[in-house]
Simulated scan of single mutants.
Amino acid sequence: MVSLASIQADFAGDRTFAYQCLENLNLYDSPALKDLATQAVAGRYLRILPPLPDASADPTRSAISVVLCEDDYPGWVAVEDLDLLTVAEAPYRAIALSTDDIHACLPQVIAFARQAMAQPNHYLWGGTVGPNYDCSGLVQTAFASAGIWLPRDAYQQEAFVQPIPMADLQPGDLVFFGRPDRCTHVGLYLGDGQYLHSSGKDQGRNGIGIDVLSEQGDAVSRAYFSQFRGAGRVVACYTSRRD
């Protein structure tokens, strides 16, 4: 376990470490620690960024800025949660997988997503550790379960994958939805025109469900299909810019 004092000593000694999560960890979108940005499952790596907070100012609400190593995702961690971290024994190194390796893992990815759907769940903005996920959190975690790292957010995942025509969709591909100027939603294609995704209350099912990629589906399927942007295939693992 680490503490703010030990981190401050490391920074003062010009020593920087990778840290690992001992337990699931919440990351917030600001130092106010109010709104969830993402979550880190036990075992994930992160780096702590300067400047460090002044614990004497408000030791119960101060926060530290971090970036998750596997996807370069930034966030804020409560100082009181530092006991959920430990100094990593070795630096983080991304695992390279070939396109064939990734293709072979897709049944495992789909199985994870289906199992997640079978558990009681609801949509959680920022959720990645289950049972409650947001759309891109479910996709990222399903692929991570097979050792394949993707970027965190839907628009990042859209930019990362290899674009494919809708006619070429295969199980394990990703389908993207949103506005003309930005991707805001992602699902995992299952085959036979169906995709699995975690959708919210306003337009979706408030949790994980299966919809049809067609204007012939029910109201939820039609709503998402009207925002369909395109599809993509995962052909590589994300490599951290800081490796």
Rank of each mutant, 00 (worst) to 15 (best):
L4T: 01
D10R: 13
A12Y: 00
Y28N: 01
L33R: 08
D35H: 09
T38Y: 07
V41H: 12
Y45F: 13
R47E: 12
R47P: 00
L49I: 10
P51L: 10
S56F: 11
S62Q: 04
V66E: 08
C69Q: 12
V87M: 09
E89C: 06
P91F: 04
P91R: 05
Y92I: 01
I102P: 02
I102D: 02
H103W: 06
C105M: 08
L106C: 04
A113N: 03
M117S: 03
Q119K: 15
N121K: 10
G126I: 08
G126P: 02
T128C: 05
V129L: 02
G130P: 10
D134H: 01
Q140L: 11
A144K: 14
A146I: 02
A146V: 05
G147A: 11
G147T: 06
I148Q: 02
P151T: 01
Y155Q: 15
E158V: 01
A159P: 04
D168V: 00
G172N: 00
G178H: 03
R182W: 11
R182G: 05
R182I: 13
H185V: 09
L188H: 01
Y189H: 03
G191D: 05
D192M: 03
Y195I: 02
G207C: 13
I208M: 08
D211G: 13
L213M: 12
D218K: 12
S221Q: 10
S221N: 06
Q227D: 12
A231Q: 08
A231H: 11
G232W: 00
R233C: 14
C237Q: 14
